[in-house]
Design a protein around this nucleic acid. Structure first.
Lengths: 227, 227
DNA sequence: CCGGATGAAAATATCGATTATTTATAGATC
DNA sequence: GATCTATAAATAATCGATATTTTCATCCGG
């Protein structure tokens, strides 16, 4: 059971809705890494009470997007080159494993979902003009990567991958905010999807690894530039 | 930053204390897997209010020990053969990676901590007579395994490993409750520690893998017997 | 002029009560 | 006799207020 899925599956309790809004704000970079989250300010800002706010932050903490310290409140998780390196490293390793399992267990229905997700992703532009278009691309991009490993039959692994993917998305959106993509990302996605559907496990893992690591290197470069 | 460490590091907020007590109860098997956690009953049982209780459960949720569903409350995470298989599989993979990194980065101080943890573990008996002795062994056993990978310089990986280790401990304590250990576990621990300190990465990974998988198979057998 | 103690202000942690939702039960209808 | 519906009890979610802790500026002493 994914934490994010709960947003749509259940009747949406206030806590769940709020967690989603805050997560988006952090992933989008609206809330600066390392900045203190003053509960009372957020409370009035979002028009809720403290209880659901605390619970929402607690969920975000388990996703590694905020950090809490007893008696000292919450802050947005800081960013660092070391942390990014670890995130990329773990993504490569874990998504690699998940991809191989998905290839092993995926059926025709799964293939269809992958093709569909790829198609929907290809229908929106990456370097989008409006912020809204960007959000659509982000959502479909995330959905595509999730679909690739959806057949792996390892729910825990899927959750780890989702968490790591969110982390790396945050870095990309903060540090590659106005960089034009330097490579043919849609082609990379198509190549990965193709390899998976054709059951070429080694190729798929290799392509995904390169895809993730290339993005990682670009972010590292921008991060060094910012510091 | 580990979730468990916060227990000792900070002035111990009510939430943190409560989370620890509940975690122990679940790991110990006192709270049956799949059973519903009626908030109001726990509230009076532990003599706290709802807010800290909710927050404590939220932390346990991120460790995979309890599950929450909107508007339907919390329940202790159920157990299943499939879930155990995944936990063991991921432990082997992730702890294997962590062990190799620790061997790469560990210094003399780390070696000392490993030796010390092994020694302390060896000073208590596994098939302990009293429940209290058993708790001591559990704590030192967990500390030993944590120390092995403490030098890996990958905090996220460490946290994943800790979570998985807790999960697998729960299975072991529930299903191997009164099984006498069928093998020389202390010798296995000593062998792993030795290989790590002598920087034999492949040996260490292999020994740890066999250690984890053996336990896994024993639990699987007991689990099948219970069903 | 600097360092540590002190007190006021801000922020967090906790509580008790209220509101909304779900689940179980009993009754009515087909 | 089975299924659907309405009601009531149980339970979770939310709120507003209070108690506790931390932080920061200030003052005093060295």
């Amino acid at each position: 059971m994914s934490l994010r899925d709960a947003t749509s599956a259940s009747p949406a309790t206030l806590t769940t809705t709020l967690a989603g809004r805050l997560r988006d704000a952090i992933l989008r970079g609206d809330l600066e890494p390392g900045s203190k989250l003053v509960l009372d300010r957020i409370r009035v800002g979002y028009g809720v009470s403290l209880s659901p706010l605390r619970e929402a932050l607690c969920r975000l903490e388990s996703e590694g997007l905020v950090e809490a310290e007893d008696q000292r409140g919450y802050r947005v998780s800081p960013v660092s080159a070391d942390n990014l390196t670890e995130v990329i490293r773990l993504r490569v390793e874990l998504e690699g494993m998940a991809v191989r399992e998905a290839i092993l267990h995926g059926d025709a229905a799964w293939e269809g979902r992958v093709v569909s997700a790829l198609h929907q992703l290809s229908r929106c532009v990456h370097g989008a003009r409006s912020a809204e278009e960007q959000e659509v691309w982000e959502a479909r991009h995330r959905a595509f990567h999730a679909e690739l490993i959806s057949a792996c039959r390892m729910p825990l692994l899927q959750q780890f991958c989702e968490t790591l993917h969110d982390q790396s998305d945050r870095y990309r959106r903060i540090f590659l905010k106005d960089h034009a993509p330097d490579r043919d990302v849609p082609a990379e996605h198509a190549a990965i999807a193709g390899a998976m559907i054709e059951r070429r496990a080694d190729d798929a893992a290799k392509l995904l690894r390169e895809h993730v690591e290339r993005t990682g290197r670009n972010i590292q470069a921008a991060l060094r530039g910012a510091a």
